[in-house]
């Protein structure tokens, strides 16, 4: 467990910084959508790459039709955001964002991309900024608009991958008054987590 990799102080710092980042994210989303959103403090988990597929299957068994959006972030803290939202939620989210009920498929897709970008930027960007580092984001990409069948995501099957463990930061986007639920995962490599531990250490030394 990555939590065990961190000292009590580092854990407290990470929790507080995430608290702040996720607060920023939900307030910007609430602002953009004119509706109060909540994002509970994330769960952090580590697992071997092969386990990840089973984790996705288990997690999203109930969802049949959805959008899956991924967004890469690069630098010392390296990884991918994955935003998963069912069709109905995406439609409602889009009509709040665009203030319209007459939406085409492309409007909904554009909205889902925009929200993913906001969440990635706010959660990961803010966290890294608080740790006094810089990060670069690729544009988000719609991986699939799909039936979730055997597996939610096709995972990298590259030979000789330089990492074995994946760190998952997982939370949920929900709204007080709207029936909208989206799942949010940040996948990072072990090496990024090592950087995170060092950065937290430096951050604590500065306090």
């Amino acid at each position: 467990m990555p939590a065990e990799l961190l000292s009590a102080d580092e854990k407290d710092a990470l929790q507080e910084l995430m608290n702040i980042s996720f607060g920023v994210a939900s307030s910007i989303i609430s602002d953009s959508l004119n509706s109060f959103s909540t994002m509970p403090l994330p769960k952090i988990d580590a697992m071997d790459l092969p386990q990840l597929e089973a984790y996705f299957d288990e997690k999203f068994r109930g969802i049949t039709q959805c959008y899956i959006v991924t967004q890469l972030f690069r630098n010392r803290f390296d990884g991918e955001s994955v935003f998963i939202i069912d069709d109905d939620s995406a439609m409602r989210l889009s009509s709040l964002l665009l203030e319209s009920d007459e939406l085409g498929k492309e409007d909904v897709q554009a909205s889902v991309l925009e929200i993913t970008n906001i969440i990635s930027s706010a959660c990961i960007g803010k966290l890294v900024e608080l740790l006094d580092a810089q990060i670069f984001f690729n544009p988000p990409v719609i991986e699939s608009t799909c039936h979730i069948g055997e597996s939610v995501l096709r995972l990298s099957k590259r030979e000789g991958m330089e990492f074995t463990k994946v760190i998952i930061i997982e939370t949920k986007l929900e709204f007080e008054t709207e029936q909208i639920t989206g799942y949010l995962l940040f996948l990072t490599k072990e090496s990024s987590f090592v950087w995170l531990k060092e950065a937290l250490g430096r951050f604590l030394d500065d306090l």
């Binding site: 554009a110 991309l113 970008n117 930027s121 803010k126 544009p139 988000p140």
Partner: peptide
């Protein structure tokens, strides 16, 4: 500007 990160149009 708020998030200090880019937004995108696809």
């Amino acid at each position: 500007l708020t998030l200090k990160t880019p937004s995108f149009i696809d």
